[in-house]
Amino acid sequence: MQTATKAKTGNRSKTNYLVDLVIGMSFLLATAPNATGEPIHEWLSMGLLVMVVVHLLLHWQWIVAITKKLFGNVAWQQRINYMLNIGLFIDLTIIMFTGVMISKTVVPLLGLELPINMTWRSLHGLASNVGVVLIGLHLALHWDWIVRSSKRYLLQPIAKRLHKPATQLATKEQSS
């Protein structure tokens, strides 16, 4: 029973790590529309929106728990983390909304035509710059978990795969 729970927690942690890794990489790529081109930038951002919702759903229990006891007995680190996450949610919503308002690929594909409004463009740029800082802070607050998970789910499997042929070779030599 305990082993099953451990395995479930491990799988959940692995899913969290993979989702976060994809979000992080996509965000960095999405901040350079001139490098990727507008269509990739817009479709990547749409994918990012879905991944952010998945990220929120995966951490739903934490959100509910901290919301319930925000003004009660809760560690200050958790409180700061919660406030930062609210800021990040607002910022990402602004980025997504202003992105849709200045869209040149996704929105026209749906047959919609929005009026050109330079305020949305300025806000989009400003919010994405703020987003870089907020995501940096978000990563910093979870840095220990990121290092631990990277070792477990990224570095160890790679190291195992690299060492496997050598071990197999040694076993073969021993048997012969």
């Binding site: 901040t31 740029g125 400003l126 870089v132 995501i135 940096g136 990563l139 910093a140 840095w143």
Partner: peptide
Amino acid sequence: HHEGGFVHIIRNAAIMAIII
């Protein structure tokens, strides 16, 4: 200024690294 090429990815990654 916010619509850079690959240099922007490096710049943003560097900002995040400094904050972390």
